[in-house]
């Protein structure tokens, strides 16, 4: 362990000690991402551990360019996909039996297909400001956790990992149509949850 003081300067990434410090600093965020994705604390720890180890091993190939954290994040994404494939082979992923729990969605609409008054979408403000707000991310995490496992998995593969629906179908062995239905549900539930949880507090 070195007690060298860090100069918070991008060129300093070339310094191994600084890189280790930056890895340590980014770890909590990587972990929260992996948890959202894998929904299993132990597996998430494994994924992050693997990614950090790989980052350290391949360290020299990353010649101190900027965007070090993003690079490590990219490694984590691969590890997460690996683990998810492993979960699937082990039969540890729940089957997509279209358990259509549409309650949370029907709650938002009247019988005639119009918005319920208490679920009516309201403005969240400018995206840039929304994302600057730490509280948004807390509520986002909390809302993700309330999604059913499969719904959350498809949503995060799409929106957090950036896979296409075609790729998701291949990963999870589901039909693309099913994928779109799941994503529609996920987005409606998340928007409702975010609006209830965040907007009300965020503007308090």
């Amino acid at each position: 362990m070195s007690d060298e003081t860090s100069s918070s300067n991008d060129t300093a990434v070339a310094n191994p000690t600084t890189r280790m410090q930056r890895l340590a600093a980014v770890r909590p965020r990587l972990l929260s991402f992996a948890r959202l994705q894998l929904r299993d604390n132990a597996l998430a720890e494994d994924a992050v551990q693997d990614a950090l180890m790989a980052a350290i091993e391949k360290d020299t190939s990353f010649a101190g360019r900027s965007g070090y954290e993003t690079w490590v994040f990219g490694i984590l994404k691969y590890k997460i996909l690996d683990l998810m494939r492993y979960q699937k082979r082990q039969g540890r992923l729940q089957p997509f039996d279209d358990d259509s729990d549409d309650d949370a969605i029907d709650r938002q609409f009247q019988h005639n297909g119009r918005w319920q008054e208490n679920a009516r979408p309201a403005s969240w403000g400018e995206p840039d400001q929304v994302f600057e707000n730490e509280n948004f991310w807390h509520v986002f995490d909390a809302c993700m956790i309330t999604l059913p496992d499969n719904t959350a998995r498809v949503f995060s593969l799409r929106e957090l990992m950036g896979l296409t629906t075609e790729e998701i179908c291949r990963e999870l062995d589901i039909k693309e149509n099913n994928c779109w239905v799941i994503l529609h549900r996920a987005r409606l539930k998340l928007r409702d949850c975010l609006q209830q949880g965040w907007l009300k507090e965020g503007l308090a």
């Binding site: 900027s66 994040f73 995206p127 950036g162 998340l190």
Partner: peptide
Amino acid sequence: RQFSLLNQAGQRFEADLG
């Protein structure tokens, strides 16, 4: 707009890391 924002949130999560 909210759906678009959800879509951007994933990219932001990553971009904001550094």
